[in-house]
Design a protein around this nucleic acid. Structure first.
Lengths: 216, 216
DNA sequence: TTTTAAAATGAGTGATTACTCACTTTTATT
DNA sequence: AATAAAAGTGAGTAATCACTCATTTTAAAA
C-alpha cells in the first residue's frame, strides 16, 4: 500500500467501513478530479481507472456530485482541525511566548498536511467556486469557527505588543495570503523548480514578522 | 498619450472587427464560463444566451476551446501590459523615488483594471490549471518577460536600500501573494462584505512596506 | 439592380454523458 | 449448509455534447 493510499485511508476516518472497491473508486476520483477537474471527468473514466464497473460507483454514491462531496468534505474538516481544539489560548500561553515560534510551528504543521494532501487541496480550491454546497459548508465552518479563533490569536499577540495595531481581519488576510501564496507557488505553480524549502519558509516568516511587528 | 495607454488601445483594437453577433457570443461565453466554469458550460447554452444559432459560434470559432482562448488570451496580455513598456527603469527613476509611491501607484492601477475585468480574471485563474495551451502562453509571457522586469525593479529598490536583502524571486512571491490575496479576498471571496477600500489598501501597503524594508 | 461573398441558420451527426436495473457474486448470519 | 443481505456487474437509457453542412439571409461592391 502506497504512502498516498495510506494518507487517503487515514483521511477518511470511516475508512474501515469502505469496501476495497470503494477505496479504489475514491482514489481514482481524486486522481482524475485533481488532474482534469470535476466537470471534465466522466464516471466511466473513474470506473475504468478504479477497475470496477460503472454501476459500482452509483451503488455507493447516488450521484457524481455526492462522490465529490464525500471526497472533499473530510479534507476540509482536517484542514481546519487545529483551529477547533478547545484550549488554544492555553497552548499559546504555555508554548508560544513569541509570535515567531507560533508562526513557525503552525506553518510547518499545515504545510506538512497540505503537502501530503495536495490533490485533495487542489480539488478543493478548484471546485469551491462552482459548488454552492461546498461553499456553504466552507463558510459555515471557516467563517464562523476558524476566523473567530484566528481573531483571538491575533488579539492575543496584539495585547502582548507583538503584532501591529491593525484590524484583526486585515492581519489574518495578509498573513493567510503570505502563507497560502507560498504553498500555491511551491506545490501548484512551480513544483518542478528547485526549492530550498527551509530557507524559503524562513524568509517567508521573516517577511511576515517584519510586516506584522509594531513599528519602532 | 502614454505608452501604456497605447498598448492597451492596441489590444482593444480588433474589437471593431467583431460582428455584432460575435460580440454577443463573447459576452455570453464570458458570463457562463465565469459562473459555471468552461467544462460545465455547453455551446448550446452560450448560443441561447447570446440569441444566436449554435452554428454561428462555430462559424467564427472552430472549437469551443478556441472560443475560450480568444477570450482569455487578450486579457492575459492586458494584465501584463504595464510590465512590457520599454523604459520602465527610467519611469521609476523619474517618478518613483520611494518604493511606497511605486507600490501605491502600481497596485491601484492593477486593481482598477482587474475590478473592471473580474469575470475574465476569474475565468483565467480557474482554467489555467486545466488548459496546457493557456499555461504555456502564460509561462512564456509571464515567466520570461514579467518576472525579468520585476526582478529588475526589486534590484533597483534593493540597490537604493529600500528593500531588504533577499532573493528577488522571494520578494516578488511575497509581494504578489499579498496583492493578489487582497484582490481575491475583496472581489472573489467576500465581495458582498463592506470594505473600506482606501483604508484596506493603505494597510496592505503598510504591511508590505514593513515586511520588505531593511531591518533596523 | 445585379452579383457575390460573408454571415447566419438549425436540423442532423455520432459520440459521450450520468445514471438505472435486472441480475450475479460475495460475504455474513443462523 | 441454508438463507439473507450487501456488493458488484454491465448492457441499456434518454439526454446532452461539440460540431457539421446544405441552405437561407444580409450587406456591400460593381
Amino acid at each position: 500500500m502506497s504512502q498516498q493510499d495510506k494518507m487517503i485511508e487515514e483521511l477518511f476516518h470511516n475508512a474501515d467501513e469502505l469496501t476495497e472497491k470503494q477505496k479504489k473508486i475514491v482514489a481514482a476520483a481524486i486522481d482524475s478530479f485533481a488532474e482534469k477537474g470535476y466537470a471534465a471527468t466522466s464516471t466511466s473514466e473513474i470506473a475504468k481507472k478504479a477497475g470496477v464497473a460503472e454501476g459500482t460507483i452509483f451503488r455507493h454514491y447516488k450521484t457524481k456530485k455526492e462522490l465529490l462531496m464525500a471526497i472533499v468534505a473530510p479534507t476540509m474538516a482536517k484542514l481546519i482541525a487545529p483551529f477547533v481544539i478547545k484550549d488554544l489560548n492555553k497552548v499559546l500561553n504555555q508554548d508560544f511566548e513569541r509570535l515567531e515560534d507560533f508562526l513557525k510551528a503552525f506553518i510547518e504543521n499545515r504545510i506538512q498536511f497540505l503537502k501530503s494532501n495536495m490533490p485533495l487541496f487542489r480539488i478543493f480550491i478548484q471546485e469551491i467556486p462552482f459548488q454552492p454546497e461546498l461553499r456553504e459548508q466552507f463558510k459555515e465552518h471557516i467563517a464562523q469557527k476558524v476566523l473567530e479563533r484566528l481573531r483571538q490569536i491575533v488579539e492575543h499577540y496584539q495585547a502582548k505588543g507583538q503584532i501591529i495595531e491593525m484590524p484583526p481581519d486585515t492581519v489574518i488576510r495578509v498573513a493567510a495570503s503570505t502563507i497560502f501564496g507560498y504553498i500555491i507557488a511551491r506545490y501548484l505553480l512551480s513544483p518542478e523548480e528547485k526549492w530550498d524549502d527551509n530557507a524559503e519558509i524562513e524568509r517567508t516568516i521573516q517577511f511576515l514578522m517584519n510586516g506584522l511587528s509594531p513599528e519602532k
